[in-house]
Design a protein around this nucleic acid. Sequence first.
DNA 1: AAAGGTGGCAACCGCAATATA
DNA 2: GTATATTGCGGTTGCCACCTT
Length: 291
Amino acid sequence: MGRRPCCSKEGLNRGAWTALEDRTLKEYIQIHGEGGWRNLPIEAGLKRCGKSCRLRWLNYLRPDIKRGNISEEEEELIIRLHKLLGNRWSLIAGRLPGRTDNEIKNYWNTNLSKKVQTQSTSKQTHKQSTLSKSKRILINPTPQARVPPPVRTTESCVVRTKATRCTKIFFTSEEPAVVNEFVVEKAPESDGLLSDFMADLDVGGLCLSEFLHSDFSDLYRFDDNDAIRLDGNSDNNNDLSPQISSDDPLLFHGENIEHYWTGVDCIQRDAASDLQSLATFLNAEEDWLGE
DNA sequence: AAAGGTGGCAACCGCAATATA
DNA sequence: GTATATTGCGGTTGCCACCTT
């Protein structure tokens, strides 16, 4: 049995929206508010699929949409965010007020991807020589400990392509292990071909995905040993260098992260191993944006 | 002027997460 | 606990305007 389509396509308009349709949708949402997309077309008298209405509203009709070209500042921000977050356009859009994920995605595909590719090619030689000096945590596994990942894109920094909620990760070590607070268990649905195990990343009520999706400065801070700690004093948003208490819950520690990722091959390894640079970046970003 | 090629953008599609019955 | 509905996301497609030959 296949999945039921979201709506019957029969008798529905498709393609570009007319001014009348736009007006109808806008007026309806102004009166009734967003949501209930499935019934909206019927109640509003639109011959459109609910999904189509939602998309039209979010990407075009919403009053807070920013029109006009993407500024140099925005462009630079997109590039930097994409470097760290990958194709998670909704997350990137969340940091660019008035811009939609679709707009950013299109802008990336048409302009920035080529631009970045050109830049990275020219910087390649220089990068090779300076990478070892950077502060980011490098993954440098021993050859025998590593099993080549089953699927890898040519992009080096981003693996995740869907905005999926992640409370499990895959890795390919031979034996299950307990690493720090992580409870490591064999995935029951493991097909045996990849020797996959799963590690539950729920740590004290905060899982890695929440960490990645959260406002970093509200959640973490680094202590003198580069350990990432949950910020117990999240009210103090303006203080970006709070005092660390030994009572603060330890979330990740640089050495442990390196140790952990060295032995495993995780689909989100790159994102997680770069937590510190991401966090540092987001802090800098907030300063930069004057927030 | 016409034909073909290219790029930008809006819209569509399918999948996955979440909510609800 | 399961099935179904709804919502949100990223990837892809197709249209259209512009450019080149």
